[in-house]
């Protein structure tokens, strides 16, 4: 039940998937909102602190998730060939955008050599600091990658609903709870 089967995802993959979904949308909303705050708002400093802490957490989760995905059986793709190819490309794009968004975000905050505090618990050190105009370029990349990610994630969700309500297949169900073989 924890591991994937040919028919369904297991609990580990399912939980990591929905944690990612929640964090992506929460981080996007928080990131967008915190930029509108004034200097005297209580969340002016708290917003970025949560955003960076959860962002680094999601980066770690995504690495674990990708390793898990690559070492687990892959549930058989459902749908016509073009749907299967489209889904595969979409999933690859989501993973790519997840990494681009999180790495660019990391490069903004670490551009001057400061590490990123994760819940004041530990610090992710700065590794790359010498790209010219690093925080500005990384900032642009971060925004466009995050925006693309959210749009594609919405499309991904709509595709899941289409499978469930129109094609009435198991695509969405097997990402909600493990189905028995």
């Amino acid at each position: 039940m924890l591991k994937n089967s040919k028919r369904s995802y297991g609990w580990v993959a399912i939980i990591m998937h929905w944690l990612t979904a929640m964090m992506v949308f929460a981080l996007f909303g928080l990131g967008y909102w915190m930029l509108t705050l004034g200097y005297y708002d209580a969340w002016y400093r708290l917003g970025p602190w949560w955003h960076k802490s959860f962002g680094m957490t999601l980066l770690l989760l995504t690495i674990v998730r990708l390793i898990w995905k690559l070492t687990q059986p892959r549930p058989t793709a459902i749908g016509k060939t073009f749907e299967q190819v489209g889904a595969k490309l979409g999933h690859a794009l989501i993973y790519a955008l997840l990494f681009i968004t999180m790495i660019s975000g990391y490069l903004i905050s670490t551009a001057d050599g400061r590490g990123i505090s994760v819940f004041d618990w530990f610090e992710v050190p700065a590794l790359i600091t010498s790209i010219p105009q690093q925080e500005d370029i990384a900032g642009q990349v971060h925004w466009y990658a995050a925006l693309s990610l959210v749009i594609i994630a919405i499309g991904h969700g709509l595709a899941g609903l289409r499978h469930h309500f129109i094609h009435k297949d198991e695509t969405l169900k097997r990402m909600l709870r493990p189905l028995k073989d």
Partner: peptide, 16 residues
């Protein structure tokens, strides 16, 4: 102006 430097990348990005 973009060469401004207050010794904090996040703040410099905000100032720009």
């Amino acid at each position: 102006v973009a060469s401004l430097d207050s010794n904090h990348a996040e703040r410099d990005k905000h100032l720009r």
